[in-house]
């Protein structure tokens, strides 16, 4: 009995070690945003890429800020994110070799069905944000330095609502720097910054009956793809300011000689290839198109 149990225990450990070591020869690491993973798009794309190239992609999903950070520290071989200006800066500063425009979707403003701030019919997005602020209606912010959070701060600035910067002073490389975020002024009563991923922000806003800014993909997933669904509805959409482009950038081997640049670049090029672009364009969740390919004409 005792021997059998010890053998079972040893067998268990052995089995687990064997199960895990069976992986592809070539593996690259990619930091990406939670939206590409949570939407299910990567589950469609990556197996096809591995089949086409023999390269396996190890995915670490975080907010865009953290994903770019991973690239700047050389912790990953490639990043796949959505914050265009920051991506261009990433390339300009030499951390990445080239930004490939892969696809886009758009942001929408969602809120409770009874729309207490009367945002529906507000027309442009500036007016929508103004109405939320004027009514001091509850608004939930990602507050996590993600692509969506970057976009939200841009829109508050554009809206003409008085804003203020809240910052924390820290020391980097011996010099003091301020990490700051833009929030609407005097908004303690109605602005909630929760520092979570998109999904959690949507369920949080739903529970609180609040407004929030979300990418359309994640919203569709939460509105039609889960049970029970959230009851939030789109109250403003379509403005050019709400475009949400995704780019893929291999990390620069001149900065970090250890990165697997060739494989990372193969992956980036594959994402803008005919095959991948068609997969992106034909991906449907609950019958709705989530992403629109940018590299080929549809």
């Amino acid at each position: 009995m005792r021997v059998t149990l010890w053998a079972a225990l040893a067998g268990l450990i052995m089995m687990t070690s064997v199960a895990v070591t069976a992986a592809a020869d070539e593996v690259i690491t990619m930091s990406t945003t939670t939206s590409t993973q949570a939407s299910g798009l990567l589950d469609i794309l990556l197996p096809q890429f591995t089949e086409a190239s023999g390269i396996e992609v190890k995915v670490v999903a975080k907010g865009t800020g953290a994903a770019i950070r991973d690239g700047m520290d050389g912790n990953v071989d490639v990043i796949f994110v959505h914050a265009r200006e920051r991506e261009e800066q990433f390339v300009a500063e030499g951390y990445g070799t080239k930004r490939y425009a892969v696809m886009h979707n758009d942001f929408v403003i969602v809120g409770p069905a009874d729309d207490p701030a009367g945002v529906r019919g507000s027309g442009d997005v500036q007016e929508a944000m103004k109405r939320i602020a004027d009514h001091s209606a509850l608004f939930v912010s990602r507050g996590d330095d993600s692509g969506t959070h970057t976009k939200e701060q841009q829109i508050w600035r554009l809206s003409g609502v008085p804003t203020e910067e809240v910052g924390t002073e820290i020391v980097k490389g011996g010099t003091p720097v301020t990490l700051s975020f833009v929030v609407p002024a005097d908004s303690e009563g109605w602005y909630r910054s929760i520092g979570q991923g998109m999904g959690k922000v949507l369920t949080f806003a739903d529970e609180m009956g609040a407004y929030t800014l979300t990418d359309r993909g994640t919203f569709i997933k939460y509105k039609y793809g889960i049970d029970p669904p959230i009851s939030l509805e789109i109250v403003n959409e379509g403005a050019p300011e709400l475009a949400n482009p995704y780019g893929v950038i291999p990390v620069n081997p001149e900065k970090f000689p250890h990165v697997k640049y060739d494989q990372a670049d193969t992956f980036a090029r594959w994402l803008v290839s005919e095959q991948a672009q068609q997969l992106i364009g034909s991906y449907r969740l609950e019958g709705k198109q989530l992403f629109f390919p940018d590299a080929i004409a549809q």
């Binding site: 939670t34 993973q37 949570a38 999903a61 991923g197 999904g199 959690k200 949507l202 369920t203 997933k221 939460y222 793809g225 889960i226 049970d227 959230i230």
Partner: peptide
């Protein structure tokens, strides 16, 4: 992750 995706079940 499943919590984040709203797949509580």
């Amino acid at each position: 992750l499943e919590y984040d995706k709203g797949e509580f079940v």
